[in-house]
């Protein structure tokens, strides 16, 4: 299993290389340099700035320099936040975003699986229609619409919960987490319903019934493992989606996290920050995809043994 994981990690290296290369050249081919923005700056100042950031070197050399730095885990200085490195900015925003993503994931998996499994137990009854209609609404209610609506209702009209910040006032983490988690809860509900329905129609569930096992035991022990494999495999892509979603949610709720930095960096044309964060996000997403893939494989004894057998 460890060898398999290492093998997969090795496969991730070319992907990362593609990401870094593509991002680097994309950013460097952008019309207009980072300093040609707003006001007319004297040419000598630009020269000096370019020298400071090594922008006067040929692009190829810059690329390999950057590659070397990235391998060492150094994303270089930020263009706009003078005196701060990209590493510092990521380190500043990461805990907040990680916490937000964690709560959102908890909501997504907890509510999603519960709703999906509940619906699958009595298909085509109210027990199925109610959670599945709710899930459909969740899917059709994107975070950038749900967030403002929640703010309007719970923050402004009812005045129950704070509408901005993170960790400043008690309860200010609730609305952002719900906003970010709801869409994925809805998607996971649909996935787990589908997976459970598939498994519950299998012959071996009938066998378990014929053995006289109780219905809860059949569902927990015989059905859940197979039924939730699609959900497990989805966790990786869901994580990637959560990172993307954090752009919106952190903007709406004014949360000082990575997502907001990224959007701001995009508007500020802070190229080193964008570059560094893209590489960082990509690495995270690839690692999480890997983890959820491996978990899905590990849950299936046949695949697990095939991996053991070949290594």
């Amino acid at each position: 299993m460890i060898k398999f994981a290492l093998g997969r990690l090795l496969q991730a290296i070319p992907v990362l290389l593609v990401v870094i290369t593509a991002t680097f050249f994309l950013v460097h081919s952008a019309p207009g340099g980072p300093f040609s923005a707003d006001k007319a700056v004297p040419p000598e100042v630009i020269k000096a700035l370019e020298a400071q950031y090594n922008l006067d070197q040929p692009v190829w050399q810059q690329y390999f320099n950057y590659l070397g730095d990235v391998v060492k885990g150094d994303f270089g200085p930020s263009f706009k936040y003078s005196g701060r490195t990209v590493n510092e900015l990521i380190a500043a925003g990461l805990p907040t975003t990680a916490e937000l993503a964690f709560y959102a994931m908890l909501i997504a998996v907890g509510i999603g699986v519960l709703a999906g499994v509940t619906a699958s137990l009595r298909p085509n009854t109210m027990q199925d229609y109610v959670p599945m209609t709710a899930a459909m609404i969740g899917i059709c209610m994107p975070s950038f619409l749900l967030g403002p609506l929640l703010v309007l209702v719970f923050g402004i009209y009812l005045d129950w919960l704070p509408i901005s910040g993170w960790g400043d006032i008690p309860g200010d983490k609730i609305l952002p987490s719900i906003t970010l988690g709801t869409g994925y809860a809805a998607y996971i509900a649909r996935l787990s319903r589908g997976g459970m329905l598939e498994v519950l129609s299998q012959d071996y569930i009938r066998t378990a019934r014929a053995k006289g096992l109780s219905e809860p035991l059949i569902i927990i022990k015989h059905a859940l493992r197979g039924g939730l494999i699609p959900v497990v495999a989805f966790l990786g892509p869901a994580f990637a989606g959560l990172l993307g979603g954090s752009f919106v949610v952190e903007t709406i709720f004014q949360i000082p996290g990575l997502g907001r930095f990224y959007v701001q960096a995009a508007f500020n044309r802070d190229y080193t920050l964008i570059l560094g964060m893209t590489v960082f996000f990509s690495t995270l997403i690839i690692v999480f995809n890997l983890l959820s893939d491996m978990l899905a494989i590990w849950l299936n004894p046949k695949l697990r043994q095939e991996i053991r057998g070949t290594k």
Binding site: T207, G212, K302
Partner: peptide, 25 residues
Amino acid sequence: MREHRCNDIAVIFQDPMTSLNPFLT
């Protein structure tokens, strides 16, 4: 019915491939 299934009546199904749970020993 559970008592009957556990004590009295047992079934051997047609396809042993699909009638055994692939996730459990």
